[in-house]
Design a protein around this nucleic acid. Sequence first.
DNA 1: CCCACTTGTTCCACGTAGTGGAACTGCGTA
DNA 2: TACGCAGTTCCACTACGTGGAACAAGTGGG
Lengths: 264, 264
Amino acid sequence: MPTNGEEDPVPGGVRAGRSSAAGSAAEKSLRVLEAVAAPGGPHRLTDVAAAAAVPKSSAFRILASLVDQGFVRQEPESRYGVGPRLRALSALVDGGQPAGIGRILGDLQRSTGQTVHLALHSGETITYIRKLEGGQPFRTASRVGLRMPLHTTAIGKAVLAHLPTGEVAERVATTGLPRRTPNTLTTPQALYAQLEAVRSRGYALDDEENEPTIRCIGAAVLGPSGRPVGGVSVTTVTFLVPREEIESYAPALRAAAEALAPLL
Amino acid sequence: MPTNGEEDPVPGGVRAGRSSAAGSAAEKSLRVLEAVAAPGGPHRLTDVAAAAAVPKSSAFRILASLVDQGFVRQEPESRYGVGPRLRALSALVDGGQPAGIGRILGDLQRSTGQTVHLALHSGETITYIRKLEGGQPFRTASRVGLRMPLHTTAIGKAVLAHLPTGEVAERVATTGLPRRTPNTLTTPQALYAQLEAVRSRGYALDDEENEPTIRCIGAAVLGPSGRPVGGVSVTTVTFLVPREEIESYAPALRAAAEALAPLL
DNA sequence: CCCACTTGTTCCACGTAGTGGAACTGCGTA
DNA sequence: TACGCAGTTCCACTACGTGGAACAAGTGGG
């Protein structure tokens, strides 16, 4: 392209520019895959497209491709669900991790006698990836695969506390702090104050901020780069475990969080 | 681009043409992801590239992208392992399926008292995605996530029996029939004869063809299109369950296979 | 000590594969 | 009947991925 300063004024300008963070082929496919696997039965095209932040026509094409690769399964009435190949992949993932994680969580569960959760941080939420019921005869409503906000859960707040403050502010600005119970922290000030406390103590508390009658203590699990990748928590019911007692779980909890770091 | 018939002779010709079944961007990324999740610790770049059938340079680029999306985790010495985001996806997948599959397999396990396997068919192998130990005090060597050949296992043969004969012949031609025990069927004739029997009976037997002292009975699980997507099996040890007895499990096995069809 | 071989990494010219807006269809509803 | 919404098809444009080749860094053998 030899010296030709005159022409080509770059006509399109910004060129309608890729709504925001569009990402490339493969990236979109993976987002679509996550959207399909999201809790709540087989999903409709429009919902998948929205959840994956992909134009409908692209979502359609991508889904068609995923379907005939076997990762996604097309159910009646053009709904999309998890396909066999994704299921096999999933089995590979947690089949390869037989010992470590389970033992650490088991130890924590035995030493506290309470329900234990392991969750991973992704985007604006945490996702429970493992749950061990405590000895008690009731069951908490949580479920593996469920997503929860960051600002209402012990694990979520532990994660937030280890994120750069800039990112926290950005999240608060975009998603706000929706209330889930009377105790939910809904002002940035209250949240920031708690995060500061979390950093100094090394653990976070959820005092009926996510579900009434449920109190949790959580600690972040840090990845190799120091960024939080998820967290562990011990869950209790208010009428059995007084507020002071739950903090006694902190040492065991923090030990578990540190032991998990190299495994996540 | 006005009438200009002269130039542009389309130089490249066939253009070194995509070795064979290359597939597109997203497809490759997914194959790479599967390769990374494959059993056997964190993998080296070269192995991933080979397993995914992708040129090394492409694998490198794809892996880099997967790493900073969080699906793959880069371990020391440039080895690649499962990342947190893939783990979360995996939790979503089998968290969404709380009841159905587990109950069907549990029933089969209780009614037979033996170890039960559920496997999915993918490519040249089956992958175990669930395993319920029998009441017996020993453990079979199988593991969730493990892959097995088609022609040596009960589930694999059940799958083969429901595949178009052309595809079976093609597989035999490309991968052959490697021997794993003295009983393994290693000639196409022997295999075809058995597949015929499988079709007429509705179940397949593995008589120490995959592991010595292990005898299985398996049935295929068919997808909505009639294609087999996987299979269930009951596994026994030769010195406890005589050959005749294992066939008595067939009715319960077939019932389980049919019940599973709409859930896979 | 050097050479041959392997593995991870970078580079780049090329053209295909993916893109997403717009238009079309078909259904249910106000 | 007119409207809105979901799924599906179409298409011109170009950004994106491609993969061979060259480079860097180890590793082991003769």
